[in-house]
Nucleic acid binder design. Structure first.
Lengths: 138, 138
DNA sequence: TGATTATCCTATTAAATCTATAGGATTTAA
DNA sequence: TTAAATCCTATAGATTTAATAGGATAATCA
């Protein structure tokens, strides 16, 4: 139940981009340097974020990455689901990645299911009420 | 951020034990059968729970495991910390397992830190307000 | 047009963690 | 004394995560 480095780095990169005033693409190297992240690893993370509609990019000299939405329009639910995967800690309580447990005959009677349902709801409330804009100055 | 099978099975075993009326030790085999768990794997989990003060045990014929506290006196915070480890998703927001991030110059200005602080608090509230007794009949 | 810069993309390696099993030692009851 | 059960350590196997490698593609600018 640790946050992956992928998610950690992705969040830092998004926040860094959101905090920029400059109206130009920011290069991977700059983000990596500023946030102490392996450049190659960050590269693959930014690629994921671009493919999932969070970032735009520009190739070649003067190229880089930039947000394609306003920070306040990017809820943490969306970011977490792309970078980290399901918000739920077990698939049987996942909204977007639901899977039945093969060992469990009846979900409604499963102690783990019901506990994790509460945990999921509480995490969801945080993520739904937090946008990238909220992360910038805290 | 998935719940480990260890925790899942441990919670099921604890709940099963808590639901018993019988005033006698319950054998690993019975729990494993009832909850569809590998007996050997469950054995190592119950050992952990015993060593951490949740269970008592009796060896030999008629032996097995039993709770040594009332279910309502076993908060999920304690169970989760033993089985799953830190409740926090990053060490820098952990109450019981705190560690500084080596890449982060100032925690208070770290977006990840502050987001994960909120997530931890919300999970903590659930775990603190739920005891083993609450898991039995839901 | 050619050199440089930067992203794009896939594959793969290395490390860590999780899951499960093996196999015998110890204790207890009958 | 035998059978039943937990105790205990080590380790194998599987999965996931983290990081790297290396070239392809596209854009800029002289």
């Amino acid at each position: 139940m640790m946050l992956s480095k992928k998610t950690k780095y992705g969040l830092k990169a998004l926040t860094f981009l959101a905090a920029q005033d400059r109206n130009e693409p920011i290069q991977i190297a700059e983000i990596a340097n500023h946030e102490n992240i392996s450049q190659k690893f960050l590269e693959s993370i930014l690629l994921t974020l671009r493919r999932n509609g969070f970032l735009g990019s520009k190739k070649g000299k003067g190229g880089g990455y930039y947000l394609i939405k306003e920070p306040q329009e990017i809820p943490m639910t969306a970011v977490m689901r792309i970078l980290e995967g399901p918000i739920a800690m077990v698939p049987c309580v996942s909204l977007n990645f639901y899977e039945k447990c093969d060992d469990c005959p009846d979900e409604n009677l499963c102690a783990v299911h019901n506990l994790m349902l509460k945990v999921r709801d509480s995490a969801l409330e945080v993520y739904r009420n937090t946008t990238l804009a909220d992360l910038i100055y805290q």
